[in-house]
């Protein structure tokens, strides 16, 4: 039994919030706000940082595979390369490795998205909507209200 990291971060955040609430305006207030924001993000993301990224890699890969079935030859290649690299790196669960894989998939998603926006076929439009729904959901998971006022 040991203190869980989330609990420690939660208490740290509570302490900073109390400090922030009682501070006079000045540069130190900004510094405490930054630390509060930083610890708040770490606490929120700590536990599921790897699983969330792994899940996103799977879902993006599936969307890109669907795209590859519809896309012309010159686009299919880059999409499948990104998917193959993601599959090859599946066992590396370091956040930095998962982020690098996600960035590669996102780059491929941008290419696919450009093509889908120009493509009038029904299948392509369904995939465009599914892709946008995924991007919206991924954004909602990460968004945090950053206003310090």
């Amino acid at each position: 039994m040991r203190p869980l990291v989330e609990k420690v971060l939660e208490r740290a955040l509570l302490g900073l919030e109390e400090k922030f609430a009682s501070m006079p305006p000045g540069p130190q207030m900004g510094e405490v706000w930054q630390m509060k924001m930083l610890i708040g993000l770490l606490r929120r993301d700590w536990d599921d940082a790897a699983s969330l990224r792994a899940e996103e890699i799977d879902r993006l890969s599936a969307l890109l595979k669907r795209g590859a079935q519809l896309a012309p030859d010159e686009l299919r290649g880059p999409l499948m390369v990104a998917v193959a690299r993601a599959e090859a790196g599946r066992r590396n669960l370091r956040i930095s490795a998962l982020e690098a894989t996600l960035d590669e998939l996102r780059q491929a998603v941008i290419k696919l998205h450009v093509w889908l926006e120009e493509e009038g076929e029904a299948d392509a439009q369904v995939l465009r909507r599914d892709l946008w729904a995924f991007l919206t959901e991924a954004n909602r998971r990460r968004v945090i209200d950053v206003r310090p006022w």
Partner: peptide, 8 residues
């Protein structure tokens, strides 16, 4: 890093 939403 690449950002599909901003690019869209």
């Amino acid at each position: 890093g690449p950002s599909p939403i901003t690019q869209a």
